[in-house]
Write a protein that binds this DNA or RNA. Structure first.
Ligand code: SF4
Ligand code: SF4
Lengths: 158, 158
DNA sequence: CCGAATCTGGATAAATATCATCCAGGATGC
DNA sequence: GCATCCTGGATGATATTTATCCAGATTCGG
């Protein structure tokens, strides 16, 4: 799984803590986590395209959550970064069997192997969809949240 | 996910169909699915090390299932090929926070993010562990099994 | 005992995906 | 106007996956 998922999760949790009063520049988030600014920006762009973040260009611009943390699931986030493809990609090696008969109808329906892997993938997605950003930010210790607020200079007004 | 998982699944289902009367050479399995023989062999070796297949060297040697298909789960197979690491690897970017305080005990316990991703991974593994090779070979259409038996020249005695 | 078949495992190379940087363009606020 | 900041494409570096090859070791059949 791409490293950007971890980055995106941390950034989103942080944005949830900060509230969406004013956007946070990508460079500032990168600085916070000591991540490569340009590449983190690419990840945040992906989250923007997925409708998880909204971006405002220009001075005093940046990123903020596009909707309430309660309505952003981990599945949304993972899908935005990793893409919608399943982990198990079937390459249809079955059809390459030496005596494969193209006329056979058997190859049209998904086989048991693909179905089994798909079922497991669904269980994974379901679990991710059951957890929201709000859960994450609530589960973190208060001290972590306070530290983030302080670091971003929002300690007093929130 | 590595392509070898699909190969391994197909090979194991086929081996389950063929029974373990006599082993099947890797080259023959590769021929069956039109896969690169040398690389497929590497995958089968991994299954061997994981205790899913047993290999017999020498003439008339090859691979066979190490135990009954009912006792080989998809999780066994996937883990053997993909390795035991979880998809989500935490790189502890939290500790890189600008004001990270090494003395803080907060960094010792796993954070909410890692816990959430781990929970989803467990759901995936659980689903994989619930399905066995026997389920797969039973779910496949009879014609597929018959074709495999015929192709391997085992149509008469099984 | 000999030779063909077959696995083992390490070295190596090719192909691909991931990670990272850079830059020109456009938008926004001061 | 100018500094800030996002956008998106091009490009390069690095890591992983895929694939090949070869020198042993083992077994079988004759
Ligand atoms: S038989 Fe199933 S797993 Fe194999 S190639 Fe076809 S769909 Fe994929
Ligand atoms: S806070 Fe959680 S997800 Fe982030 S680096 Fe630490 S353990 Fe990993």
């Amino acid at each position: 799984m791409s490293e950007g998922v971890e980055w995106g999760l941390h950034c989103c949790v942080t944005l949830a803590w900060l509230g969406d009063e004013e956007p946070v520049p990508a460079a500032r988030l990168a600085e916070r986590f000591q991540l490569p600014p340009a590449y983190l920006n690419k990840c945040l762009q992906a989250l923007g395209r997925a409708g998880i973040l909204t971006s405002t260009p220009g001075a005093r611009g940046g990123f903020r959550l596009a909707r309430a943390p309660e309505r952003i699931t981990l599945l949304d986030l993972v899908t935005a970064i990793e893409g919608p493809e399943e982990a198990f990609r079937c390459t249809e090696i079955r059809q390459r069997c030496a005596e494969a008969n193209p006329a056979s109808r058997e190859f049209l329906r998904p086989c048991a192997i693909a179905a089994a892997m798909h079922k497991a993938e669904l269980a994974w997605r379901k679990e991710l969809a059951a957890q929201t950003l709000a859960d994450l930010s609530a589960a973190a210790p208060r001290s972590a949240r306070d530290a983030a607020l302080r670091w971003f200079g929002r300690g007093e007004n929130d």
